[in-house]
Nucleic acid binder design. Structure first.
Length: 896
RNA sequence: AGGCACGUACGUCAAUGGUAGACGGCUUCCCUUACAAGGAAGAGGUUGGGGGUUCGAGUCCCUCCGUGCCUACCA
């Protein structure tokens, strides 16, 4: 058989995915058992403009691990893929593209522009699906969705209409976050707060009679042109007299009142605040309280309006700022300018400084929806956050302080708001234009030009993708989904909104569990971002180390943040190579053998120790991996598998079977050993498959008898694939603690002898005799049964086992657990001083451990209060140490 | 400003209140016919400092130092 010595991931990654997909293994229909339990995941839809980054690969790996695992457990599994239309960024990308052609979207017109976006989406979206196929994601492509698909659009309109009819969606004129660059309103969550150094300007507003007046402090002097009051705290003695008086607003000649408002912090600045209701959210509120006029001095392009006065009209806001300051200086009204650090609001997408503006927009009232979500958590503790701390609290705290959501956006790309206006300005909200006409009783309607926030449609994702509002079979089967795996940055933007919408329209939470994955940082601990250019393309990592190795590293990230270092993937690449070579060994020695699952079901004294032991290890590993995955402990699962495959299977089991398996002649012993070896390997590959789909499938396909070995019964009749093989169960009945103890004794013995060889500088090629002494007859017969293995693994010329250790004086010795001793006669090789030193070191170690334990036991409180089994454990360990120390002393004496 | 996390080997990270581990790196030896992307044997830790609870603390509590993240309407 042709098997290269080195694992080549590219070769293994080549053909399997296509076959899996073509044969329909990813679709839930592959499962023939109609009573099968269901497992479903709706993918967090990636942004169609982007390409996938490591964070996506991380989440996809975790979702794929769970999906493949559950599928192998016989669940009817659906991992539903799809993409998000990402209104603002997509429109931005296409606008940029147009700009290169010297066009604006207005040149094309709405319809043509949207056509253009669809064309662009096809290309960009294709990139994402290619990447996902490369990752090995076992998503059901036949159910792929896009938030702008007609059926999802229908769900959006349905939700909008129902919420409107319930009075939960309304249109209103309020102050909002406006991005002057994107020309659209943004919700609070799409605004970044960026702390940066700035200036605080102290401006004096004279009293009406030209005397005195008040000094205010502001970071935005240009807004003074729109001031309609100055506010002070009602309890502020300094200004008590002034409340109710009138000031003369410089540069405008406008008379404005001094009002008292609790909001004002007397400690800050001068204690007096200029009030610009049209351009500041707080001032807006104050304006409402005091019935102040709203004077709009800045327009949607962040330029000064005519209202700002002839001197300023048309100026950019920052130029206007400079000019205002200059004028104040000229008038002697600029008291001072101090350095001041404050947070500035920026557009999350384009980083343009937000301009708060008064604008007519659509809003969603959140109080009722919020209560639904909070109730769900309070009563049923749903959804279950993993890790619970701190995310459950983060989630509920945010909900408690939730404010209304601005859902309209001044974009063309997105779900156009299903609201129409009659000539008289009446609002008709309907599912379609026809319905609107019928409702209005006229055909003369114009539809609202705005679209909905992308997150509006995303909030419906878990049920809109399954066919809602139709009562489809899929909806009935797969909702609620089993788990959501996502980053902590969208708990508010997305997770909470899905819960509210799911609760409102499906009466149930959209997912049972929410697993919040850790964030991948760069080597310096910085978040990866486009602007910092420190992102890593997963495809590059795949190229370098292979998909399976990368997946293993990603799966081991878990829920804590990690600093990414390519080097760390290397050890998993080495692991893949180890798997490859272990399989290579098994395959090269598999002639005459076929996988036989029967041997997995029974263990007993008729089996060799290592055979009982590996069955025990295999079942324990399966059990531990299952437990780890049940609690989303991906890291734990990876560690368990890594340790089992490399340490248990490769380092010990293969080594222990070598002598049998590599025999030239076909004997029953050889062939049975071969059957056991490849059968255990096949089980190990199954255990690894959810994490490393390519290499495991590739090797599995080569194993003799794999095609005939049992798929999970739910998949009877399906084409052979490890994907549908039953995941090892982890049977308690096959966990054999006695075999594990005995095997450990053998391993310890071998390790001690190897240690002696190494410390004594005995050449690895030099055979030495090994003498074992133990009064324990059972132990002796156990060593005897494994003497051949021991001899091979320590390169012994002979292994002799006696009740008494009868070794020449010139021997290196070691003490083992269970009152056993081992000696390696080293006539002419031994350096007595060195040997005494070596034993002395060992004695010190024992003494240190022993005195620690004795002190613990000597404490009367310990015996009294600690559980009995702990106390017994300590007693046993002390006894063991005492015995070993005594033997060591004897050994040292023999050396004198 | 508040809230929350984190600080463990040289590095990156693990450890239901019960013997502090893994991987990489490092030292020595070995190309032993599955694998040098490997094998064998080692070195390396008063778990950031201090205090407390407990029979027992990396783990729970307090405090200080350091580092991140989130939330917020101080102009």
């Amino acid at each position: 058989m042709e098997i290269p010595k080195q694992y080549d991931p590219k070769q293994a990654e080549q053909n399997h995915y296509e076959r899996w997909e073509k044969l329909g293994f990813f679709a839930p229909e592959v499962n023939r058992d109609e009573h099968a339990p269901v497992f479903s995941i709706a993918i967090p839809p990636p942004n169609v403009t982007g390409s996938l980054h490591l964070g996506h690969a991380l989440q996809h790996t975790m979702m794929d691990v769970l999906t493949r695992y559950k599928r192998m457990c016989g669940y009817r599994t659906l991992w539903l893929p799809g993409m998000d239309h990402a209104g603002i960024s997509t429109q931005l990308m296409v606008t940029r593209e147009l700009k290169k052609e010297g066009l604006t979207r207005h040149d094309l017109g709405r319809e043509k522009f949207i056509e253009r976006v669809w064309k662009w989406k096809k290309e960009s979206g294709g990139q994402i699906t290619r990447q996902m196929r490369r990752e090995g994601a076992s998503v059901d492509w036949s159910r792929e969705k896009f938030t702008m698909d007609e059926d999802l659009a229908r769900a959006v309109r349905e939700v909008f209409v129902r919420l409107y009819e319930d009075g939960m969606i309304y249109r209103g004129n309020r102050i909002v976050n406006w991005c002057p660059n994107d020309q659209t309103v943004l919700s609070d969550l799409e605004v970044l707060k960026d702390p940066q150094p700035g200036k605080l300007y102290y401006l004096r507003y004279p009293a009406k009679n030209g005397e005195g007046g008040v000094t205010v402090a502001t970071t935005r002097p240009e807004t003074m042109l729109g001031d309609t009051a100055v506010a002070v705290n009602p309890n502020d003695e300094r200004y008590r007299e002034l409340v109710g008086s009138t000031l003369l607003l410089p540069l405008t000649g406008r008379e404005i009142p001094v009002v008292a408002d609790e909001f004002v912090d007397a400690e800050f600045g001068t204690g007096a605040v200029k009030v610009t209701p049209a351009h500041d959210p707080n001032d807006y509120d104050m304006g409402q309280r005091h019935d102040l006029a709203q004077i709009v001095v800045i327009d949607v392009h962040a330029k000064m309006t005519n209202e700002a006065g002839a001197d300023f009209a048309g100026l950019d806001r920052y130029k206007a700022r400079a000019k205002v300051v200059e004028r104040f200086a000229e008038l002697g009204l600029l008291e001072k300018i101090v350095d001041y650090e404050f947070s500035i609001s920026k557009c999350e997408r384009c980083k343009t400084v937000i301009e708060p503006l008064i604008s007519t927009q659509w809003f969603m009232r959140m109080d009722e929806l919020r209560d639904l979500a909070l109730e769900l958590m309070a009563r049923e503790k749903k959804p279950r956050f993993v890790p619970e701390v701190p995310y459950e609290k983060v989630y509920t705290n945010w909900l408690e302080n939730l404010r209304d959501w601005t859902i309209s956006r001044q974009l063309w790309w997105g779900h156009q708001i299903p609201a129409w206006y009659t000539k008289d300005g009446e609002i008709i909200v309907a599912r379609s234009e026809e319905e609107a006409r019928a409702k209005a009783g006229t055909n003369e309607l114009t539809q609202d030009q705005d679209v909905l926030d992308t997150w509006f449609s995303a909030a419906l994702w878990p049920f809109s993708t399954l066919g809602w509002p139709e009562q489809t079979k899929d909806l009935e089967t797969f909702y609620p989904t089993s788990v959501l795996i996502t980053g902590r940055d969208i708990i508010f933007l997305w997770v909470s909104r899905m819960v509210m919408m799911g609760r409102k329209f499906m009466s149930r939470e959209p997912f049972a569990d929410v697993f919040i994955n850790g964030t991948i940082l760069d080597v310096h601990g910085q978040r990866m971002s486009k602007t910092k250019m420190n992102g890593i393309d997963p495809l590059e990592v795949f190229e370098k180390y292979g998909v399976d190795a990368t997946r293993l590293k990603l799966a081991s990230v878990g829920s804590t943040d990690i600093r990414w270092n390519d080097k760390q993937v290397e050890s998993y690449r080495n692991f893949a190579n180890k798997i490859w070579n272990a399989a290579r060994f098994c395959l090269l020695n598999s002639e005459g053998a076929t996988i036989n699952p029967e041997i997995l079901n029974t263990s007993g004294p008729e089996l060799a120790l290592h055979d009982r032991w590996i069955l025990s290890r295999l079942n324990k590993t399966a059990r531990d991996v299952r437990e780890a995955l049940a609690g989303y402990q991906f890291h734990e699962a990876v560690q368990t598998l890594y340790h089992f495959f490399w340490d248990d299977f490769c380092d010990w089991y293969i080594e222990l079977t070598k002598s049998d398996v590599t025999a030239e002649e076909s004997t029953a012993q050889r062939d049975q050993a071969r059957v056991r070896l490849i059968t255990v390997l096949e089980q190990a590959l199954r255990l690894l498959h959810p994490f490393m789909p390519y290499i495991t499938e590739d090797l599995w396909q080569r194993l003799p008898g794999a095609h005939e070995s049992l798929l999970h019964e739910a998949y009877r009749g399906a084409a052979p694939t490890i994907m549908l093989a039953a995941y090892p169960e982890g049977k308690a009945s096959l966990i054999d603690e006695n075999a594990e103890w005995e095997m450990q004794a053998v391993i310890d013995l071998i390790s001690r002898v190897r240690n002696i060889r190494s410390e004594m500088n005995i050449k690895p090629s030099e055979p030495v005799p090994v003498l074992i002494g133990s009064p324990d007859e059972k132990l002796r017969s156990m060593f005897l049964a494994n003497a051949g293995q021991i001899r091979r693994l320590v390169r012994a010329s002979e292994v002799s086992i006696n009740a008494q250790l009868d070794a020449p004086r010139a021997s290196a010795r070691a003490v083992l657990a269970g009152s056993a001793e081992v000696a390696v006669p080293l006539a002419g090789l031994i350096d007595f001083a060195q040997e005494r030193q070596r034993l002395g070191k060992e004695k010190e170690k024992l003494a240190a451990e022993g005195s620690k334990l004795k002190a613990q036991l000597a404490n009367p409180q310990f015996a009294e209060r600690a559980p009995e089994e702990k106390v017994n454990e300590v007693r046993a360990r002390i006894a063991d140490i005492a015995q070993r120390t005594a033997q060591l002393e004897q050994t040292v004496e023999n050396l004198q």
